[in-house]
Simulated assay, not measured.
Amino acid sequence: MGSPFSRRVELALKLKGIPYEYIEEDLSNKSPLLLQYNLIHKKVPVLLHNGKPIVESLVIIEYIDETWKENPILPEDPYERATSRFWTKFIDEKCMGALRNACWSYGEESEKLMEEARGLLRTLENELKGKRFFGGEDIGLVDIAANFIAFWVGVLQEVRGVSLIDKDTFPILHEWTERFVSSSVVKETLPPRDKLLSFFQARIEAMAATKSMIYK
C-alpha cells in the first residue's frame, strides 16, 4: 500500500513542477499496461514520457532531472553528484532491507537485526551532521531515496511497538524525518497514515494467524 518507490517519482515530479497523470496499479492483479511497459520487472513505478517507458525509481528521477532542468534534484558538481548516487545505493542496498527486517522480526533474531539496523542509521546520522537535508539546504536525490526511512519506518515502529529512529538515539536523523515529512510538497506524495497503519496491522494479524495454524 503506497509504494515508497512510486512516491519517490511523484515527489521528483512535484519538486520540478511537472504536471502528470497518475494511474493506480493493483499489484495483486497486474494490468496489461504495466506488463507491457515494464516487461522485465513487472513492477511499479513506470514513467511514460513521449510514449517511451522509463522504469526503476532512481533511474526515473535522474531522467526527470536531466529532461527538465529547472529546480535541479542532483547537484551540478560531478563529485557531489557521484556522492549522492553513492548514498542512494547505500539506502537501497543496505538500509531498506535491514530496516524492514528489523521492524518485522520476532524472537531471538529481533535484537540482532535491530542492532544491525541501528548501525546503518548511525552512518546516516553522521552523514547528515551540519545539514538540513541530505541535499543541503533543500531536498535532493538522497532525501527522496530515503522517504521510506522518513515515513514508512515510523508507521512500522508504531504498529510493532519498536523503536529505531528516536530523538534520543538519533537526534539529527529524527529531526530530519520531521522536517522532511512536514514539507508541504512531501505531504502531497505520502499515503494516508491511518490507512498505512491499518494495512500493516492487517499484515501482522495475518502473519499471526498463519503461525497459529502452523503450531496447532
Rank of each mutant, 00 (worst) to 15 (best):
G154M: 08
E25M: 03
I204S: 10
A208F: 13
Q157I: 03
L196Q: 09
E25A: 00
M213R: 15
V59S: 12
E188T: 11
A146V: 02
D166E: 12
V46W: 01
R100H: 12
V159P: 05
K69V: 15
K42Y: 01
K94P: 02
S31R: 01
G17L: 10
N147V: 09
G140N: 04
F90M: 00
A98S: 09
N38F: 02
F133D: 02
S183H: 13
E93T: 04
G2W: 11
E70C: 14
L190H: 06
T88P: 08
S163T: 13
E66T: 14
G51A: 10
H49W: 12
D166N: 14
E111H: 08
E115N: 05
R122K: 12
V186R: 06
I91T: 08
P171K: 11
V181G: 10
D143E: 07
L128P: 04
Q157Y: 03
K89Q: 08
V44N: 06
Y106T: 13
K69C: 15
K131E: 02
G97C: 04
K167Q: 13
K30Y: 00
D92Y: 00
A206I: 13
H41P: 04
I60R: 10
L121W: 00
E127D: 07
Y22P: 10
D26T: 03
L27D: 01
F151Y: 09
N147I: 11
E205R: 15
V153S: 04
L27I: 03
S110D: 06
L99Q: 01
S84M: 07
K14T: 09
L74N: 09
L47M: 09
